[in-house]
Each structure stands twice: as structure tokens, then as C-alpha cells.
């Protein structure tokens, strides 16, 4: 071991002493060294200074990183995590609406074995129901107050536009089950609005 290695080895032992890691014979040896060596005492002080220097408070990040972290977390959420509960909730809700519509209309076509086919059937049932409700709802709309009617026209126009866009997307990917579901959601919304219109008109008629 050369002089430099010896010096490093001694510094290692003194570092352990500074941290209180020594005991027994090793501790006794260092205490004896410190009692006899001014250089060793100075090195202990230097090691303590070094430790204190390292512990000096550091500044934080240059900016608040949380917004970027939150954005990354949101962006990386698996689509299915969000979509799955909604999707199955919707399929259930769609089934309920279809059942409701079926009471007012002829029975929908029999179900086919695949989910995609079933969704396609549901779409057809919705579309047929909407057609059949159209006349009744048109008449109902005419009975509503002007401000309500205007709101309704806007709502229906928005849903119709979204339906057209979804149908255009579906024409590009006719087997996409998510496209089917999105379209079903829009049909469902339209049925809900038409039902509300008819119900409101019936209430108004009863009241008058």
C-alpha cells in the first residue's frame, strides 16, 4: 500500500468514526490515534465540515413541475380505464332505452351472436324508433313555449350534427365496436330529448 492508499484508508476509518460507525477495538484505535495525532484530528474536522457542506440546503426545481407531471399522468391513462365503466354502463342503459322504445314500437330485429352485430341491430332499432317518434315530437315541439322550443332546436341540431359525424366515421371503420357505441350514445341522447319533448307537451296539454 503506497502513501496515498494509506491516507485514503485512514480517511475511511475516520469517516466511520465521524458517523459513529466504529465500536470495540476499531474505536479504541481511532481514539488513540486522535489523542496522539494533530493531523488526524484535523482530518476528522475536515470530514465533519465536508458532511455539513453536503447537507447544506439545496434549492428546489427551477419551476413547479407538478402541472407537467399531472399532464403526463392524465395523458398516459389507458383509454380502457376510463372507457370501460362508461362503455358497459352505456350498453346497459342502451338496452333499457331499447326496451322502453320497444313498448311503443314493433319488436326490434332478433339479436345476432357477436357484440358488433348486436350493436348494429341496436343502432337500427334506435334509428327506427327515432323515425317513428319524429311525427309525434314535431307536433309536441309546436306546443312548447318559444324559448323552450329554441333551446330544443339547438340541442337537437347538436345531436344530429354529432350523429352525422359519427356515421361518417363509422363508414370508414364499420366494424369498430367503439364507433358503434359512440353512435348508440348519440341515438340514445336524441331519443331522450324527443321523449322529454313529448312528455313536456303532454304535461302542458293536461295543464291547459
Amino acid at each position: 500500500m503506497n502513501e496515498r492508499d494509506e491516507d485514503l484508508a485512514r480517511l475511511e476509518v475516520l469517516s466511520a468514526y465521524v458517523d459513529g460507525d466504529l465500536e470495540g477495538e476499531a474505536l479504541a484505535e481511532v481514539e488513540a490515534l486522535l489523542a496522539s495525532s494533530e493531523a488526524a484530528r484535523a482530518q476528522v474536522e475536515e470530514l465533519r465540515d465536508l458532511k455539513a457542506l453536503a447537507a447544506e440546503t439545496s434549492t428546489g426545481p427551477s419551476r413547479d413541475l407538478w402541472p407537467a407531471i399531472a399532464a403526463e399522468l392524465e395523458a398516459s391513462k389507458p383509454a380502457n380505464d376510463d372507457a370501460r365503466p362508461w362503455r358497459w354502463w352505456f350498453v346497459g342503459a342502451a338496452a333499457a332505452v331499447i326496451a322502453f322504445v320497444a313498448l311503443r314500437t314493433p319488436a326490434p330485429p332478433p339479436a345476432k351472436p357477436t357484440l358488433s352485430a348486436q350493436l348494429a341491430d341496436a343502432r337500427a332499432a334506435y334509428a327506427a324508433a327515432i323515425d317513428r317518434m319524429a311525427e309525434e315530437s314535431d307536433a309536441a315541439v309546436a306546443k312548447l313555449p318559444e324559448d323552450v322550443r329554441q333551446q330544443l332546436v339547438v340541442s337537437l341540431a347538436q345531436v344530429d350534427r354529432a350523429i352525422r359525424e359519427a356515421e361518417a366515421a363509422m363508414s370508414q371503420a364499420p366494424e369498430d365496436p367503439f364507433g358503434h357505441e359512440a353512435l348508440l350514445a348519440l341515438y340514445s341522447e336524441k331519443v331522450r330529448i324527443l321523449e322529454a319533448v313529448i312528455a313536456a307537451a303532454e304535461l302542458k296539454e293536461e295543464a291547459s
Partner: peptide, 24 residues
């Protein structure tokens, strides 16, 4: 962990030696 810490401090002390003396 302890062994590496003491070796690291020894190296740091050796690297900083003269400057450390000067700053004290």
C-alpha cells in the same frame, strides 16, 4: 452502504484537500 460512504468521503476529502484547507 456504510463502506461505500466512507470510501467516497475519503476520496472527496482527497480531491478537495488543499482547497478545503484554504477555505477554512
Amino acid at each position: 452502504s456504510k463502506s461505500q460512504l466512507h470510501k467516497a468521503r475519503a476520496k472527496l476529502r482527497a480531491l478537495l484537500g488543499d482547497e478545503h484547507e484554504r477555505a477554512r
